[in-house]
Amino acid sequence: MTEKLKVLVVEDEVLTAKMLKMDLEELGVNVLETIAKGEEAVKVALQENPSLILMDIRLAGGLDGIEAAERILQKKKIPIVFMTGYATEEIKKRALKVNPVDYLDKPVDIYRIKNILEQLDN
């Protein structure tokens, strides 16, 4: 994968975020600083224009990951992969309406993310 692929990790669990970042970096992926809040995620996404956003659904702040994704996608078509510890059917439905690239249960399969990135790269 080329270094131009940038991944934004939006995860309110800091250590989980760090671990994910570390795993991705081990795979040679450029990971932007992890974001814990939805609003900030929107701002950074629009600003940094990452290749892929790994968005946790439950976030700190006023926006949850789905709402943040909606706002981002209103402005830019950035591929989003939702991550969730557990979600109700309602949340799943909401999330899928945003048309994410993937919807992963945590702990996420890093190789799956790798595949997605490779596809994006191609």
């Binding site: 669990e13 250590l15 989980t16 760090k18 570390m22 510890g85």
Partner: peptide
């Protein structure tokens, strides 16, 4: 619980 365990995993990984 899972999350906490994942956090522990993350710490251990780190």
């Amino acid at each position: 619980t899972k999350n906490n365990m994942q956090v522990i995993c993350a710490i251990l990984r780190l």
